[in-house]
Design a protein around this nucleic acid. Structure first.
Lengths: 183, 183
DNA sequence: CTAGACATGTAACGAGTTACATGATTCA
DNA sequence: TGAATCATGTAACTCGTTACATGTCTAG
């Protein structure tokens, strides 16, 4: 139950059409919650049916016509409720540790190359986040909203830092593993 | 496409029945890939139909009867293939940063308490992992398989460390946020 | 002989993914 | 006028979750 609330947040920040939302989910929001345009359109339909958002008046009924939405009071209330509600942390769910564990049984052949690739990707992502941090959160900016959004970016930076360190550690271990075939 | 491979790995480590697998997914494997018994039974059925595993001969056709599976050569091959295949890293997908971003718009009321709860849960999980590390990976043990499994546990420890640090940071920021209502 | 634990399974739904379909606008 | 792009949407499928159903075994 997170996508609708991600959309409500995005729409409160700025009323948008489906495609505009899709683009924003490719950028900042997508750093911690990605979504495709199909999911977004489906969810916009539900949110409108539930009376949490409405299409901005412009009388376009048809396909191919841009349709923008704004959040209704009920939508804001629902978002505030969800934000404050207790939720259990999600257990981690990542295939990479799984592959290491499998490698302990069927051998590590070929895995190392992909780990190296992951390391590069995470390093690139980390560099991008640091750029954004430098650009969007210079020392002066420290209103309440700025601080909260900075915290969110911090989560991204720290997570990527975790991955790069862990992958480097893993590659170092691989380097002096005895045999490379099945264990 | 990770659950079937998690099951193959578990079965290679030790042939098991559905419920035994469920229990193992509640423990060690579940630290990075959780699954319910319904998912597991469904997946066992598919894997058997695909000829990757087979039920151990014991001629029990019915419900309520224990049914153990073992991995066939085709299953081992498939697992080795998957382990070595290139896979893109999953973008992070966590509701918590989302809630902070929402709080920047609708206010932080009530969120702090849940952050504190998350911090406690992550601290407990971290302590548990450290216990396991002390118990299962004493300095002496360093065969190839041990090292790989230790790496997996390391990922869990480092991730929990990330969360506890980030949450502490977030709570510190909250503590000296000016207004607590909608921004 | 029955209550509780053990064990396997079905059904229905929600969320995410992939492939494709359709209409409008712009510009060469 | 027709190709490219913008924009909205359908359909079909997989994966994960929740609730429930059914059968077996064992201890008291």
């Amino acid at each position: 139950m997170s996508l609708p609330h991600a959309i409500l947040t995005a729409l409160l920040e700025k009323p948008s059409s489906g495609l505009e939302l899709t683009r924003r989910f490719d950028k900042s929001i997508g750093y911690f919650w990605s979504a495709t345009h199909q999911q977004i359109y489906r969810e916009l339909g539900k949110l409108e049916a539930d009376g949490l958002i409405r299409a901005l008046p412009a009388e376009q009924p048809a396909r191919g016509q841009k349709k923008s939405y704004e959040v209704l009071p009920a939508g804001r209330d629902e978002l505030a409720r969800w934000t404050a509600a207790a939720q259990d942390p999600r257990p981690m769910r990542d295939p990479l540790p799984l592959r290491l564990r499998a490698a302990a049984v069927v051998g590590t052949t070929g895995l190392e190359a992909d780990l190296r690739r992951h390391l590069e990707l995470h390093e690139r992502q980390l560099a991008e986040y640091r750029e954004i941090e430098k650009r969007d959160f210079p020392p002066g900016k420290d209103g309440a909203e700025d601080r909260l959004r900075h915290l969110v970016l911090r989560a991204g930076i720290d997570l990527e830092t975790f991955w790069t360190q862990w992958l480097r550690h893993a590659l170092a271990e691989f380097a002096d593993l005895p045999g490379r075939g099945p264990a």
